[in-house]
Design a protein around this nucleic acid. Structure first.
Lengths: 129, 129
DNA sequence: ATACCTCCTGTAGCGACTACAGGATCAAGC
DNA sequence: GCTTGATCCTGTAGTCGCTACAGGAGGTAT
């Protein structure tokens, strides 16, 4: 059983974030030493590591918790995991599409901007459009 | 001079958002009628419309304010506009790259997920990796 | 008079942390 | 035993850009 700083180092999850996950009920409350300090098991660290990977994949925290819960069941319900993943993939793709739309619009608008212009064509078009 | 609801309709910016912009100093405080209600000029509406377009292009509010301020100057400093736009374009592109990385990783991870699996390969790999 | 609409101020919530403040406890060296 | 510095504790506030109330005042139409 290790203290929170060590759990943070081993999982890559920040100390404040670990306490935040505990407050929010994402991870179970850890054991406490007699001096009231938190004590983490290898399983606790494993949970934090899984959370970290889910977050790095962009899953919202609620989904990350759902995946964590699924991983606790022995059954590891593949259907539910796949559903969460595909929903998330769809979100990611729609964000990409939106950003590409922005990229094109920005490129087009700023294209005529050059030093020496009397009035900025980008601002002019934004004001008039 | 029109009341806030009409300014909201003409600019497409929500009433609460207009008041928020005022609180945050993004737009100047409008005139007030004798009954303390806000009164907006055509210029005020134009500012809101420009803000709306900048936000729709994904500029952070601080940048949108900067663009608004630039548009108020007669000079309309094209260099500054271009700098803001290019910085923002770079941000957008790095977000796209990051999301495409996630998309590929998610696709790869969930690819082996199918009904009938005893243990979910995605979860297994997230736990072990 | 009634009902309804618009407006006012002020505050709290979203997501997912992050950054303190202000204190308690611990480990190591002298 | 004393000091220093690291680590830990709780609790609160800040980030971004809104959005959604609560609770009230004022305006308009019947």
């Amino acid at each position: 059983m290790i203290p929170i700083g060590e759990a943070s180092r081993r999982s890559g999850v920040g100390i404040e974030t670990i306490r935040y996950y505990e407050r929010e009920g994402i991870v179970p409350k850890p054991a406490r030493a007699s001096n009231n300090r938190r004590l983490y098991s290898a399983g606790d660290v494993g949970r934090l590591r899984l959370l970290k990977k889910c977050r790095a994949l962009g899953f919202p925290l609620a989904d990350a918790k759902a995946l964590l819960d699924l991983s606790e069941e022995g059954s590891t319900d593949c259907q539910s995991v796949k559903a969460l993943a595909e929903q998330h993939i769809a979100n990611v793709r729609s964000k990409i599409a939106e950003l590409e739309r922005l990229d094109a619009a920005l490129h087009e608008l700023s294209g005529n901007c050059d030093s020496g212009n009397v009035s900025c064509p980008m601002l002019t078009r934004l004001q008039d459009g």
